[in-house]
């Protein structure tokens, strides 16, 4: 039950982040909003890191440098998310975003890129994505 609440709240916060960013962008500009929110988030995470004991910063060295750079993608993610929400609303944006997210995850899994365990393409994943596209079409037209 607690797990369900966490996951449900997590999803709510992801959407909240998108609509809040798009609202802030209206007032101060999209790049300003991205820079500001990433900065305050970074400072908060850093403060929490300073308060907990289990700090293993050295272990970053064991990670392939490419994987350490994932955070930088957020700049484009925030810009894209805000632009899309302003153009076509939150529901349609999140729907399209989730379809692209799952499709790419599926592609990477099936090719075994970036050292993920290679998995066979299977019908349920195709059907799942087709259902999502069908849902978007119902939503919009």
């Amino acid at each position: 039950m607690r797990g369900l609440l966490f996951a449900f709240l997590g999803g709510a916060l992801i959407t909240l982040q998108g609509v809040a960013n798009s609202r802030i962008s209206q007032s101060i500009g999209t790049w300003q909003a991205a820079t500001l929110t990433q900065w305050t988030g970074f400072v908060t995470a850093l403060l929490i890191l300073l308060f907990i004991r289990d700090r293993k910063l050295r272990e970053f060295k064991q990670v392939k440098p490419l994987y350490l750079t994932g955070g930088a993608l957020a700049a484009i993610i925030i810009f894209g998310n805000v632009t899309a929400i302003q153009q076509m609303g939150a529901t349609f944006t999140i729907s399209a975003l989730l379809i692209a997210q799952l499709s790419l995850t599926f592609l990477i899994d099936s090719k075994g890129w970036f050292g993920v365990a290679k998995q066979k393409m299977q019908a349920p994943q195709f059907i799942g994505i087709l259902l999502m596209v069908a849902g978007v079409i119902i939503l919009r037209f």
Partner: peptide, 8 residues
Amino acid sequence: LGLGFLAS
């Protein structure tokens, strides 16, 4: 978040 900030 730090890298997201730098990139933005």
